[in-house]
């Protein structure tokens, strides 16, 4: 067998566990190995990069046959993080599996005291109509000095460094096409 660092880690990890348990006077190694095996048995590994600070640590996410996230841990092949994660990165599993996640499109009507669940289609159409109304009402072709400015003064946007590069670029493209100039995000604060 070719010894890669990951297989080496598995072997040395098992040895260390054996030594510790051996010190207790009984050997739990088979139980430990079985438990380890169960957790990610048959799981699919997918690589990603942590969503928190800017170090860019590698993460491996394990999903079961139903596509459910069952584990997330540091990617030992990653040259920056070499398998390490901080407390936040190591909690990535709980981002995926979390009952508090927003899972519905919610709408709060003016002066209402509650959210109402709505459909994507309805929400996007209503937002689009709002955009058009605000844009058309506030669009400025020329400024006070008579210079052409072609901008929408009545809509602003903040966000987001939490999006992927491609999404950031696309968002910037959309906002500028709509004529927005008040475009800001986390980098300013």
């Amino acid at each position: 067998m070719k010894i890669t660092r990951r297989t080496f880690l598995k072997v040395s990890g098992a040895t260390a566990a054996g030594t510790v348990m051996g010190g207790l006077g009984f050997d739990l190694t088979p139980v430990e190995s079985y438990a380890q095996e169960l957790r990610i048995k048959g799981a699919k590994e997918t690589t990603t990069v942590c969503c928190y600070c800017s170090v860019g640590c590698g993460i491996i996410v394990h999903t079961d046959s139903a596509g459910k996230v069952i584990n997330a841990e540091g990617d030992p092949d990653h040259p920056i993080s070499e398998g390490s994660l901080c407390a936040k990165g190591a909690s990535s599993y709980q981002i995926a599996v979390n009952p508090n996640r927003l899972q519905k499109v919610l709408y709060r009507a003016p002066y209402s005291n509650a959210w109402k669940e709505v459909k994507w289609e309805w929400a996007l159409e209503k937002i689009a109509a709002n955009i058009k109304k605000s844009r058309d009402a506030s669009f400025m072709e020329k400024n006070a000095a008579g210079q052409v400015v072609n901008r929408t003064n009545g809509i602003a946007s903040v966000g987001s460094a939490a999006m992927d590069n491609e999404e950031c670029w696309l968002y910037s493209k959309m906002l500028r096409a709509l004529g927005l100039i008040y475009v800001e995000h986390q980098a300013r604060i």
């Binding site: 990069v49 860019g56 981002i95 996640r101 899972q103 499109v105 002066y111 929400a123 992927d164 491609e166």
Partner: peptide
């Protein structure tokens, strides 16, 4: 809330590990 006119749309988005794309450290 009875005095606040703002209409709010709260749209649920995918977390980082639920989509494909790049980020720059």
């Amino acid at each position: 809330p009875k005095k606040i006119k703002t209409e709010v749309f709260q749209l649920p988005c995918a977390a980082f590990l639920e989509k494909e794309g790049s980020i720059s450290n």
